[in-house]
């Protein structure tokens, strides 16, 4: 049985170490080496690998952000030199990771752990990614995929978020983008100093609000600078008032 393997790391020498460690495993076939997350997303779609070796700190988007962009991500062995936040996330979710520089023995251990795991079920990275979203570089932005393009949206440019079935619609001045996520994920992850959940299906950037109008009886709408009217529920109104200091 052959497995397809992918290495994603921005340092050529770091990739060569993984390649060397892979030599004793003829059944693991290296299909591509990627320089960054953008190449990684493409290569994963193209090759559908069984296992990826993934660095965290890479240009433009981190390894975690890359995984967020992939539906049903493959098994991952993370490789990183030093990253407190990433290690916290790994510890919390018992995913195997290799700290650079690592030995062949440590590498072998990770491979055998993966082989055990791959026999059973596909791992869920959802919880891991939620934990990893506390990473400072991810605190400032959301990464989305539109067709083949990857878009990095700074948080302050977001007007509001709206739930849409299995997706969340992220609305900005440039237009709206869909991300496969839940509202409660964003409520947990986004800094509360900027966003407030005004309604079961809406989260609003408070800096965008120009006024709050009454709407029908006992309900309100928040009017944004863009003119958009966002529903405010009965539970959301006091929360909004408090955060705006009214």
């Amino acid at each position: 049985m052959h497995y397809k393997v992918l290495i994603i790391d921005d340092e050529p020498l770091a990739r060569s170490v993984v390649k060397e460690c892979l030599q004793p495993y003829p059944q693991l076939q290296l299909v591509e080496e990627c320089n960054n997350g953008f190449e990684g997303v493409k290569a994963i779609q193209q090759h559908q690998p069984d296992l990826i070796f993934l660095d965290i700190q890479m240009p433009k988007i981190t390894g975690f952000e890359m995984l967020e962009l992939i539906e049903n991500p493959p098994h991952v062995i993370f490789t990183t030199a030093f990253d407190e936040y990433a290690m916290q996330a790994f510890e919390a979710h018992a995913i195997d990771y290799l700290l650079k520089p690592f030995s062949q023995q440590r590498f072998d251990k990770a491979i055998s752990k993966w082989m055990e795991l791959s026999k059973t079920t596909a791992t869920s990275t959802e919880q891991l990614l939620k934990e990893a979203a506390k990473h400072p570089s991810q605190q400032e932005r959301i990464v989305v995929k539109t067709g083949t393009k990857i878009k990095i949206i700074p948080l302050h440019e977001i007007h509001y978020l709206e739930a849409a079935d299995d997706y969340v619609k992220i609305v900005t001045a440039e237009g709206s983008f869909l991300k496969k996520q839940t509202m409660s994920y964003f409520e947990d992850v986004l800094s509360t100093s900027l966003f407030v959940r005004t309604h079961r299906s809406y989260m609003v950037n408070m800096q965008q609000i120009t006024r709050i109008d009454p709407y029908e009886k006992e309900n309100h709408v928040a009017v944004l600078k863009s003119g958009a009217k966002i529903p405010v529920s009965r539970a959301g109104y006091p929360r909004l008032k408090m955060l705006l200091g009214l």
Binding site: E11, L13, A14, S16, V17, E20, Q57, A81, F82, D83, L99, K100, P101
Partner: peptide, 18 residues
């Protein structure tokens, strides 16, 4: 130190053999 140092060590590790 930590990030830079460990990455530099990893590069050295890669170069030692080749």
């Amino acid at each position: 130190q930590p990030h830079f140092l460990f990455n530099a060590l990893n590069s050295i590790n890669a170069l030692i053999g080749s």
